[in-house]
Nucleic acid binder design. Structure first.
Lengths: 222, 222
DNA sequence: CGGCATCCGTGACGATACTG
DNA sequence: CAGTATCGTCACGGATGCCG
C-alpha cells in the first residue's frame, strides 16, 4: 500500500491543554499559531482563500488551509459558496467567531504599547490599524461609518455602537460613509494608546475630517 | 569542538510574525503555547517554579523554563530571589505583564461559553474559576476581598475596583476577607456567563454568603 | 487561476532522565 | 527544589504539484 488515507476525519489527535478552565478551552480553539490573525482578517468581512493568504504574509498554504478547517470544525467560521456567476467560495465568521472581537480588541490595546517602530522586515496592511483606531472612536455617541485613508491604503470602520454591529470594519472605501478621515498610521496608534485625543489631532492638523453630519462634528470636537 | 555554547543570548532567531500590527506584535510576545496560561497563574501572585509546574499540568519542564526566560526577556515577568532564610526564587508579573488581565478576562469570557462538561482527562484547579467569577462581581460598587470556597479548593478575589488592583486574585484563603462565599464550580461558570445573577443564586441557596459588611449585603442583593 | 495537497528540512514540543 | 540534557515526534514554513 503506497499511501493509506491521510486524514480520517481529523485523527482525534487534536492537541488540547486538557484543563477544565475557560482560558485553556479558549486557547484550545484559538491558541494555535495564525488562528487569531485569521480571525483579525475575517473581522473585516467574508474573504476568499487567496485574499486571506495575501494579507497573512508568512503563513504557508497548508497551514492556512488546515487552520480554516479547524475553525470550521470549532464553529468559528463557515465556508460559503458564492452564486454560480462567480464560482468562488468565501470564509466568514460565525456569531461565535465574531465573539472574539473583545479578545482581539484587548490584545490590540495591549500590543499597541509594544508597537513603536516599523522594522524593515515588517509587512503592513491598512486595515490592521482598524482595531487601534476603533478604540479611539469608542467613546463617540453618534453612530456611523467612517472611511479611513492611510498612506498604506483605505478601510472603513463603524463608530459608536460599542462594537455591537455585525461588521465592525471592512476593507477598502465604504459605500456611503458619513465621514471621511485621513491620517497616518502612527497617529492611529497614538490615538489607540490614548496618547493623543481626537480633538488634539484635529487641532494639530494631523487628521483631516470631511463630512457634515453630527458624527463628523463630534469627531472634530465641536 | 565537542560542544559549542548552545545559546548565545537567545540566538536572535526568535520566530516573529513580522507584521506591523498590534495584534501580531502582541502574539509575538504571548502567542506561544503555554505563555498565556503561565500569565493566568502569575495573575494570582508570585509563584515558585515548582508550584507553577504543578498548576500547569501537561507542560514539560524545559518548555516552562524556556517560556519563563522568554517572559523575562519580553518584560512580562521578573525572577526575584527570596531573602536567605528561605533560599528560593519566585516569578512575578511586571506591570506590563499585569496589563494582560483584560486579555485574559476577555478570553475567559469567550471560553466560558465553550466550557460545558468536564472531560475525564481534564485537570482542575480552584483558582481557574477566579476570572469567570470576577466577571460576575464586576458590577459591584463596594470593594473588598472575597474568599471563595469551591469543592476543588479555596481562592480569593478582590471585588469592585474594576480590576485596577495590583493583585486581582490569589491562592488559598485570604488573610482578612470581608466576605466568604461557598459555591460550586458550575455556578461560577453560570455567573460568569450571566446565565444566573448573584441575587438569583443567593435566593436558590446555590451560594452561601457569610460576612456582615456592605459588600456582603450587596452580594446578597440587599 | 483559485484552492488546496504533497514533500521535505528545520525547529518546537513533550516525556524522561539527570544534575547542582 | 530548580532547572538542564537528551531524544523522539510533530508542527511549521517554503516550494512545488495537482485538479476542477
Amino acid at each position: 500500500m503506497p499511501r493509506q488515507q491521510q486524514q480520517a476525519a481529523r485523527p482525534v489527535r487534536r492537541r488540547s491543554y486538557d484543563q477544565f478552565c475557560a482560558n485553556a478551552r479558549a486557547l484550545d480553539s484559538v491558541g494555535d499559531r495564525w488562528t487569531l490573525l485569521i480571525v483579525r482578517e475575517l473581522l473585516g468581512g467574508p474573504r476568499r482563500y487567496t485574499d486571506l493568504h495575501a494579507d497573512l504574509p508568512g503563513v504557508s498554504t497548508d497551514v492556512l488551509a488546515s487552520r480554516l478547517k479547524d475553525m470550521e470544525h470549532n464553529g468559528l467560521a463557515v465556508r460559503r459558496r458564492l452564486p454560480p456567476p462567480a464560482p468562488a467560495s468565501v470564509y466568514e465568521l460565525t456569531e461565535r467567531g465574531h465573539g472574539l472581537l473583545p479578545v482581539l480588541a484587548a490584545l490590540a490595546a495591549w500590543g499597541t504599547h509594544a508597537l513603536d517602530e516599523r522594522r524593515p522586515t515588517d509587512a503592513v496592511r491598512a486595515h490592521w490599524f482598524a482595531l487601534p483606531l476603533l478604540r479611539a472612536l469608542d467613546g463617540l455617541t453618534h453612530e456611523g461609518v467612517v472611511e479611513v485613508a492611510l498612506n498604506e491604503g483605505d478601510f472603513h470602520v463603524r463608530a459608536g455602537g460599542g462594537g455591537a454591529a455585525a461588521e465592525v470594519y471592512g476593507f477598502g472605501p465604504a459605500e456611503r460613509p458619513e465621514v471621511r478621515i485621513a491620517l497616518d498610521a502612527a497617529l492611529c496608534l497614538e490615538l489607540g494608546r490614548g496618547d493623543v485625543t481626537l480633538a488634539e489631532a484635529v487641532g494639530d492638523g494631523r487628521i483631516t475630517v470631511s463630512g457634515d453630519g453630527p458624527l463628523a462634528a463630534e469627531i472634530r470636537g465641536e
